Amino acid sequence: MNKTLISLALAALSSYATAGNLQVLVLDKEGKPVADAVVVVVPVNKGVPKAALPMQVTISQEKMRFIPAVSVVGVGAKGSFVNNDPWEHHVRASAAGIAQFSTASSGGFELRIDGKPDGKPGKAADAVFEKAGAVLLGCHIHGSMRGHVYVSDSPWALLTGADGIANLEQIPDGAAQIRVWHADQLLDIAPQQTTVSATPGKATMQLSVVPRRRRI
């Protein structure tokens, strides 16, 4: 290999060689930590995340709830919906924020899943999340059922824990944008600009609402 090719190869590798970690704290309107907020970091430079986003997720319908209530997946991920209740459920999905469910305009989908037979596994149905963004899940029969899937086109995406913190690792050094989404935040929060470096960074994002307590 000549010197020119070696130089080009080293330059290509260097664009992926440096990365840093970023801790993002999400607070509610009153300054309290928020769980299950989606934190997405979009770096300007290319890189490889420490772990890829899930491309398959299982969401159960149980006790009139979607479990987990919020999931984060990559674009094109497959969702498997399992009905563990003894009665019939539907899964109707559309882009979050639409006043009414509209599969035609939002690229959503509708599934019907029979109830779980006694002593047997729950019935299941599959769908694919093809578009980036937040997806609202509901049931035609049981209007109180709500769940969300956030489909991220950036591999640096994570849910906050009970402490309101998301730790994102191996982000390419340089300029990056932080975005936060939460199911109860109806108006988008302005993205925050940051610079990632070898020194671990921290950022705080605050919602303009106090999230409702989730039914247990």
Rank of each mutant, 00 (worst) to 15 (best):
V44C: 04
N45Y: 06
N45D: 09
N45A: 15
K46R: 15
K46H: 08
K46F: 08
G47K: 00
G47R: 01
G47N: 01
G47S: 04
V48Q: 07
V48Y: 06
V48S: 09
P49R: 03
P49Q: 04
P49N: 04
P49T: 00
K50H: 09
K50C: 06
A51V: 14
A51I: 07
A52F: 11
A52Y: 08
A52R: 12
A52K: 15
L53R: 02
P54K: 06
P54L: 04
P54Y: 03
P54S: 09
M55L: 14
M55R: 07
Q56V: 12
V57E: 10
V57G: 04
V57C: 10
T58F: 08
T58G: 06
T58Y: 11
T58C: 09
T58N: 11
T58I: 08
I59D: 05
I59F: 06
Q61H: 11
Q61S: 14
Q61E: 15
E62D: 13
K63S: 11
M64R: 12
M64A: 15
R65C: 09
R65S: 15
F66L: 02
I67W: 07
I67D: 07
P68Y: 01
A69R: 07
A69K: 09
A69E: 13
V70N: 02
V70Y: 01
V70Q: 00
S71L: 00
V73K: 02
V73E: 02
G74S: 03
G74L: 00
G74E: 02
G74N: 01
V75H: 03
G76F: 00
G76W: 05
A77V: 04
A77L: 03
A77D: 03
K78V: 06
K78H: 07
G79R: 03
S80V: 11
F81P: 02
V82P: 06
N83C: 09
N83H: 08
N84I: 08
N84C: 11
N84Y: 06
N84K: 15
D85A: 09
D85P: 05
D85E: 10
P86N: 09
P86S: 14
P86C: 10
P86T: 07
E88M: 14
H89N: 14
H89R: 12
